[in-house]
């Protein structure tokens, strides 16, 4: 009997699975269609267009590696990579430290959901509105920030007009907008840490700083890795703040890579070249994400 049942089970299992696959496909279909239509196909087409001379309005013309060869000698492109890198380092560096501090404070000091909600507020405002409001507040002549600096005897600063200030200013604006959201993600990670560990540490007489560096940070690593991958990729794609404030200037100080792509495609009608830059950006981001996950061993946790 046992053997017979075993045989029957082995016979039915594939049929079962076959039916399951069919049902699974039906459930997956909407997502799959979306993935193909909005991700896979545009990616494939984008890669194809990067090998063509295409002006958006007439048919693409195959040009081999021309666009990539042009990239190598395009100073504006290399400058845009450098500018974007500066932005990412500033943006992510400050944002992660601030968000981590906020999250730990939230975790250790308060249980109020109102305060947790409040720190999320800047994230709820549209990017463009945030950028415009800061643009006006930081205006050289009429902005309130420079007015307040004037009261304490500091000369006006060209936040958007000075080459040295433009990228830090834009990075700062986006830190302001995203820190609450990032803090909330980290906060969620903090809540997964077993409270017993903290109690044990307290019993052993560890101070707050020691607890933070020896317990919180190591146990938070997988969540922190995920948050970093998400925010770094988002940060590389900075566009809207630049588009509504400096538009690449002064000189090329804020010509970030996404803005350069937009400029090539839609104001200079060089869609093929814009696609080539996009492919390079795609490869960079894939590399960055892969390296981050490897380095931070995101799949593993120190918590057993």
């Amino acid at each position: 009997m046992a053997v017979a049942r075993g045989v029957r089970e082995r016979e039915t299992a594939p049929r079962w699975r076959g039916r399951e696959t069919g049902v699974a496909l039906i459930f997956l279909a909407p997502a799959l269609l979306g993935f193909i239509a909005f991700y896979a196909w545009p990616t494939v087409r984008g890669v194809y267009l990067s090998f063509t001379d295409y002006d958006l309005l007439t048919a693409p013309d195959f040009s081999g590696l021309d666009n990539y060869r042009r990239l190598l000698t395009d100073d504006v492109f290399w400058n845009s990579l450098w500018v974007t890198l500066k932005y990412v380092v500033l943006n992510i560096g400050v944002q992660t430290v601030v968000a981590l501090a906020l999250a730990v404070l939230l975790h250790r000091l308060t249980r109020s959901t109102v305060i947790r909600g409040l720190i999320l507020l800047p994230y709820l405002i549209s990017n463009v509105v945030v950028a415009l409001v800061w643009y006006w507040m930081a205006d050289y002549n009429l902005g309130i920030i420079n007015q307040m600096l004037g009261w304490v005897g500091i000369d006006a600063i060209g936040f958007f007009g000075d080459e040295a200030w433009a990228i830090p200013t834009i990075a700062g604006i986006n830190v302001w907008r995203h820190m609450g959201y990032t803090a909330l993600l980290i906060f969620a990670g903090l809540q997964t840490i077993n409270r017993d560990v903290y109690e044990a540490a307290a019993v052993d007489g560890a101070g707050e700083f020691r607890i933070f560096f020896r317990i919180t940070l190591p146990l938070l690593r997988p969540v922190l890795a995920l948050v970093l991958v998400l925010t770094v990729i988002g940060s590389w794609q900075i566009f809207d703040t630049v588009a509504v404030t400096t538009q690449g200037g002064p000189v090329d100080a804020t010509r970030v890579i996404q803005y350069y792509i937009f400029d090539q495609a839609f104001t200079r009608f060089d869609f093929g070249y814009a696609s080539a830059i996009s492919v390079v950006l795609f490869l960079i981001l894939a590399g960055v994400a892969f390296a981050q996950l490897k380095l931070l061993r995101a799949g593993e946790s120190d918590q057993s």
């Binding site: 643009y135 205006d139 050289y140 002549n141 060209g158 958007f160 007009g161 000075d162």
Partner: peptide, 19 residues
Amino acid sequence: PSLAAQTGLESPDQLAAGN
């Protein structure tokens, strides 16, 4: 004004503002 100082509002607004 310098390049940094002119960034922002357009010149007619600066005229109106007395700058």
